[in-house]
């Protein structure tokens, strides 16, 4: 099947998509956007989190066809004109990135949280990011990064 969708502001048209494919597979293997990660294929790890029409979703659980005509934003779309988003800067500088496989999904989830709740409490951060597994950091530096990003956004 043919799928036309807008990803990171650009219209993509891909052909020969198998209808059982996920949005994640389509992004990674057909659109040249491997930033979103495939780590569990069942919505348990959050590594594939992308925005679908402005809402953070697990792209492994969205059928490719469900994205037809929708707007998708991936980790590759968070930076603007080469300038990292404050959430990206904070993750980098706070040591929230080790192996980094969870990072793309966490960035989108944290980006969404701070867009809705500019100054979240620690418990709000924890509940909002509970769907994003990290195996390297123990999450402390991820919390640091989200707090830091909130401050950066407030100052911006």
């Amino acid at each position: 099947m043919r799928i036309t969708t807008t990803v990171n502001g650009a219209v993509h048209e891909v052909d020969d998509v198998w209808p059982g494919e996920s949005l994640l597979y389509m992004l990674r293997e057909r659109m040249g956007l491997p930033g979103s990660k495939n780590a569990c294929e069942q919505g348990e790890c959050g590594s594939c989190t992308v925005y679908l029409d402005g809402e953070p979703v697990c792209s492994c659980l969205v059928a490719a066809g469900q994205a037809i005509g929708r707007e998708v934003t991936t980790v590759e779309g968070l930076a603007t004109e080469g300038q990292l988003h404050p959430v990206q800067e904070a993750f980098l500088e706070c040591g929230a990135v080790q192996c980094g496989f969870c990072t793309p999904g966490l960035l989108v989830a944290a980006h969404d949280l701070l867009a809705r709740v500019p100054d979240p409490s620690d418990l709000e951060i924890r509940e909002a990011l509970a769907g994003n597994l990290c195996r390297c950091t123990g999450y402390e530096k991820i919390l640091d990064a989200v707090r830091s990003a909130a401050r950066r956004q407030a100052e911006a």
Binding site: R28, P34, S36, K37, E76, A79, F91, L92, G100
Partner: peptide
Amino acid sequence: GTLKVTGEFAYASD
């Protein structure tokens, strides 16, 4: 780090 926060870092699966 920068490649990892922009999604450009190439993991084996990428």
